[in-house]
Design a protein around this nucleic acid. Structure first.
Lengths: 138, 138
DNA sequence: GTGTTTGCAAAGAATTTGCAACGAA
DNA sequence: TTCGTTGCAAATTCTTTGCAAACAC
């Protein structure tokens, strides 16, 4: 399938070795909107790769983040979350269950003057509250 | 001084016991714009309270966050940061040194339709990039 | 006095590292 | 063959917890 070829291409361009584990991690990230943590990824893949270790997940994520293929989110204070959807977009986090939702709307935000001596590479709006499900059981 | 009285008042209203450690932590948080981590707070206070433990810092922070006196920031993926400046405001984080700056400008943001079934309690804009100092040594 | 908070040490989560064996190029 | 990657286990870092002693009220 095309998808696989694209992934192979992507990796090759970055000069990374194409191990099955790496392909699986990238594939998993690209096919979820769940903003998984390292543990989520590990759990999702351990059936297919019973011998895979956490270190591999962390190593791969580190490389992917370095190369800009994946974003590391600092939204959840309890652990890192990862997002392969790198178009600029925004997030909502449920303060009860921790679910993170994408917000794809555009906000018209100009870099404030007080940051004029910083190099601002991007920004995102983080909404916080209760998601639909947690609102019910509040 | 007035400051001390105010802090005592604040605590009393919340029904919290006024231990010297707690007063010191709240005082420290109120007098810094550094968005310190638990460790920063511990280090800053261990001279005055050589016997104070990390547990006390964490306990106190937990209580302060619960009562809304302090905000827990999820901006820094490597650890929790705390902010006693509870007016709604925004942040910039340096992706190199981790410094967090306040951005007090107002942004005109309306809750997007896709979050209409969530209860959005607040939002903040997070800017990311290199601070003035790190820009130089990039 | 009573019930909370402290301090300590130990446990627990999340993440990182060292290193030998492995495998993609 | 070569050098980057994997897997394991151990180490680190950050945070939480259990419990007896101390202290605010």
């Amino acid at each position: 399938m095309d998808e696989l070829k694209r992934r192979l291409e992507t990796y090759r361009k970055l000069g990374l070795k194409l191990t099955p584990q790496r392909l699986a991690i990238l594939e998993y990230l690209e096919n979820t909107r769940e903003h998984p943590s390292a543990e989520d990824i590990y759990n999702a893949l351990k059936e297919r790769f019973p011998s895979m270790s956490f270190a591999t997940v962390y190593n791969t994520l580190e490389v992917l983040v370095e190369r800009g293929l994946v974003k590391e989110l600092g939204i959840d204070p309890s652990k890192k979350r990862f997002d392969s959807f790198t178009h600029p977009h925004h997030h909502f986090i449920c303060r009860k269950c921790g679910k993170i939702l994408d917000v794809e709307r555009n906000f018209d935000i100009t870099i404030p003057a007080e940051l004029s001596d910083c190099e601002v590479t991007n920004f995102q709006v983080v909404f916080e509250g209760l998601c639909r499900d947690c609102k019910k059981t509040d």
